[in-house]
Design a protein around this nucleic acid. Structure first.
Lengths: 226, 226, 226, 226
DNA sequence: CGATAACCGAGACGGTACGTCGAGTCTTGGC
DNA sequence: GCCAAGACTCGACGTACCGTCTCGGTTATCG
């Protein structure tokens, strides 16, 4: 078992990656790199999504606007590729226990959240989801779904091999592991993600609980609720 | 025990709520309501943050642009007040157990997440946090902090009275309870928040765990969790 | 013979000079004077007609905008009254010869053209004539017509008494005497109107060409003036 | 002798007529013509200077506002070019006598004054001279000075060749010939300039007073004229 | 080797929205 | 009913970007 099933197709190389033999002058790789570099520099400089205009990117990259529009249909599509470029491959799994694999998976997301550009993109993507379903779809496809799939897969196998409970609510577990990371990624800049022990705490909390008093004396006090 | 300590000061009445005796014609309450209504209508109609221009709001509200700018310095400040207006008071607590209170608290957030406008605003706010620290601060103050504070308070008292474990990591619990709700609020529109049993599942999962194979003696003590 | 027939009715006291007994608090004379003073100060400071906003006048005068609009329907009406206030009575005529009277008349216009405010107004009035026929009418009535009438009257009597030729083209003479003054008034600021001998030169130039009696008998009657 | 020495440099082609090889897409000649046409249409329709907004011009011309601002820094600069475009070359001179040339010159101005657009511009230009010295300068340079220069030149040559008196006050003659035309141009719309004999009357009026060679018997009778 | 085609930078194009200013009107409390 | 103050709607200002479209000029491959 290595990483996930549907490995992130980086789709890198923007739109129109035809395999038909292109004629005429080929696209300048240098221009493309300059564009990516410009976007990332601007993101790093604290530019907001709305300030991140195509004109500013073009100027920063020393490139004509048309050179950008030739590659991406609009600003958001460019961003999608920027995020794709950033997205490193999912971590190799296959630790001694499935708990270890879950910790690895969560730690992967934690480390992503520490990258400023990554936080920038998550926030912008969320902000644009109201108006732009296409971005929502792409972001789900590239980021959200692979991560959940990774966790689902670990859980499925953990259940099959008996390490995890059979009646586990997989989706709920996904959210218990992903949600807090998202929360800490988007809401703070002074990253509360730096503690490398965080993933272990989270996985153990999700798997075993962190709040209940030892069962003996609580058995009656938790009458199973509604 | 009622709701939280620092009840959400709605700050309603936009900028400049001087107590100095205002001179001249007073601001029109009707105009203000029309503006709020227009924003909410546009949000409801699926307008994105970037399409939500001041000009459109003014037109929709039948109001001059200056009337908006007189009250808020920019679009985002207006949104902050829109969100503040939406924010209903935190739920009354004081259920039979602190677990019940936690479920109430999570359910409050779940119900907020079901409101389309609320989802809209959370996303927009997150998207703007990159560029606009003031909005980040306000959003934290009005939304993030009260909610965490509410949970912290429940936990603190639950620990004091012995219902919850003393070594509980309060912050981690906060994120286990808030994170998944945020996740489901911002990532999907076909709301996966509709299940009214979700809060109970989450609280129980956080408190007791959902994954670990029962050490023999715990098998019977967690019978529920459908 | 004193001045003109239709003496400039200053119309001072702006709009709504009803003789019906007004009720309530009477209009403040102080406010009115402050408004006039503010306008004249702004004109003096080199403010252009388009910069001369009602708001600025009100601020300068320490007066509410409504106080201005209560008196004049708009900016231009206010200006008309400002010009009217400036307009001193036409000069007393009745010199030894009608030629002297013409020189007096021209000199009157020359002296008006030396006043900065007066130049300011002439220019502004001309500029607005394209769009605002009411101002055109008023300006004609108050300024243009009285001046022409004054000259026509002198000429008529001069002809009657035989000093001026009977076949004199009165209208042409009017323009020969008024046009150059207007030209020097509107086109230059470094006033080329300062030479007090200018009116005599102009009158003689105009008269001896189209108005002078045949030379032989006129030789003594035009003793070349000072 | 043809027209004037300093022939009206039409300066056409608005701001920035660099000879540096312009890069990028060249300015659209069509857009420029559309803008001129729109301005002239609006002027013809009786729009006043203050109603002549850039937005209206742009709409009328089917052009973006930026396309206008790219060429002229403001409304008045545009007007200057509109007037320059209108200004036809000064008339060819060289008639049988200098008196004929003067009549031609005056008739040229008379005909200009008959053009509605021309009247419109003269008035607007005068109105703006209070606040905008740059326009004053340009208007002088393009319109006022060439016309005076034309007359001065005729007079100079007429004096040299003995047709005109040597002690002629050239500047006064200029104003006697220009002033009345200006007067009739700006003060009336029902054009009192239509009489084609007017220039002859004016020239004869001016000349026989201050410029005509004495018919033998008048030589001594007009000795003065300092 | 020359033609052709797509690229490149620059920048103008018609638009939309920005945030400001002023017009002329309306609405307070106070005189 | 006037006053100062300042709100109101409306519309123009001049700027910034949007995404598209020429320009002259630069590489590529194809014939």
């Amino acid at each position: 078992m290595t990483s996930a099933d549907t490995p992130l197709k980086p789709c890198h190389g923007p739109v129109g990656e035809q395999d038909a033999p292109r004629r005429g002058r080929p696209r300048s790789e240098a221009a493309e790199q300059a564009i990516y570099a410009a976007v990332e520099k601007l993101m790093e400089d604290g530019t907001g999504l709305s300030e991140l205009s195509i004109e500013r990117i073009a100027a920063e990259a020393g490139v004509g606007k048309a050179t950008i529009y030739r590659r991406w249909p609009n600003k958001e599509a460019l961003l999608v590729d920027v995020v794709a470029r950033l997205e490193e491959p999912l971590p190799p799994l296959g630790g001694p226990t499935y708990r270890d694999d879950l910790i690895s998976a969560v730690d992967y997301m934690r480390r992503r959240g520490l990258i400023k550009r990554s936080r920038w993109i998550v926030r912008s993507a969320l902000g644009q989801m109201n108006a732009w379903p296409e971005l929502k779809h792409t972001y789900h496809e590239r980021v959200v779904h692979p991560r959940r799939q990774m966790i689902r897969q670990i859980v499925r196998r953990g259940v099959e091999e008996g390490e995890l409970r059979a009646d586990l609510d997989v989706e709920l577990l996904c959210e218990l592991l992903i949600g807090p990371i998202l929360l800490r990624t988007v809401l703070w800049d002074d990253a509360p993600l730096e503690d490398p022990d965080l993933p272990r705490q989270m996985v153990d909390a999700a798997l075993q609980g962190i709040g209940a008093r030892p069962p003996a004396q609580r058995a009656s006090s938790v009458p199973s609720a509604s």
